[in-house]
Amino acid sequence: MKTAYDFSFNSIDGGKLNLSDYKGKTLVITNVASRCGFTNQYEGLQSIWDEYKEKNVVVIGVSSNDFNQELNSKEEVKKFCEVNFGINFPMTDITKVKGKDAHPFYQWVNQTHGSKPKWNFYKILINKDGQVEDTFSSFTKPDSKKFRGAIEKIL
């Protein structure tokens, strides 16, 4: 049976971002976009990263233009995130997250959990066994009690 750790993404920094590098850790994987009304959630994601990385929680931003709100290149996205939000958690190159051409990770989440992004900043919580623990809509802020409680529950 596949787990999240079987997948990899193209990194925003070049090269591969292998989820297997985070085996045994809790993952927060969020599709992100720079020109979205929810873009301020980058602050909350960075806060989760800062607070929980010592507890083996890894935040990963999956840059996507599937909702037509991302910048034109990974270089622009990286600069935007660093300058405006001080982002230093791992991020991917611009990636498809919905439809028949969705990245295999997102196809797997849909097949195993019946869930797919309906908009930007859709959060997928992966437990230490590499399985989908829960998913959260764009309206659930990363720094909300609900989201933090879900992370705490599986630590």
Rank of each mutant, 00 (worst) to 15 (best):
L45C: 09
C81E: 00
R148G: 04
N10Q: 11
K23Y: 13
F147T: 02
I48C: 12
K118D: 07
S73F: 15
F85Q: 02
K16A: 11
I60P: 02
I48Q: 12
G15Q: 10
V57G: 03
D6Y: 06
K141R: 12
I29A: 10
D6W: 05
F38M: 12
F89L: 03
R148A: 00
G37C: 07
A102H: 02
D21W: 01
K123H: 02
F121N: 00
S8N: 10
D13G: 02
E76L: 04
K2C: 12
A4E: 00
F67S: 05
K78C: 10
K141L: 08
N68G: 04
S47E: 15
Y106A: 03
I151L: 06
R148D: 01
V57N: 08
I151W: 06
H103M: 06
F147G: 01
D66R: 03
S47T: 03
L45T: 04
K25T: 14
E43T: 11
P117T: 07
V28Q: 15
K2M: 14
H103R: 01
D143L: 11
K79V: 03
D50Q: 13
E51K: 12
Y122D: 06
G37E: 07
T39D: 07
I154V: 12
P142K: 13
I48N: 08
T135F: 11
V132D: 04
N65R: 00
G86Y: 13
N110I: 00
Y52R: 08
F139Q: 11
S20H: 06
K16N: 13
T92I: 05
Q111L: 11
S137M: 04
I126G: 06
T112H: 09
E82V: 03
N120M: 03
D13Q: 13
G86R: 11
P90R: 01
N84S: 14
R35L: 15
V83G: 01
E54G: 01
A150N: 10
M91V: 12
G44N: 10
I87Y: 09
T92E: 09
K23I: 12
G14N: 04
Q41M: 05
N40F: 14
V97W: 05
D6M: 07
K78Q: 10
E82T: 07
P90F: 09
N10L: 09
V28D: 13
G114I: 03
T26Q: 11
Q107F: 01
K79H: 05
E43N: 15
E75F: 04
E152A: 12
F105Y: 15
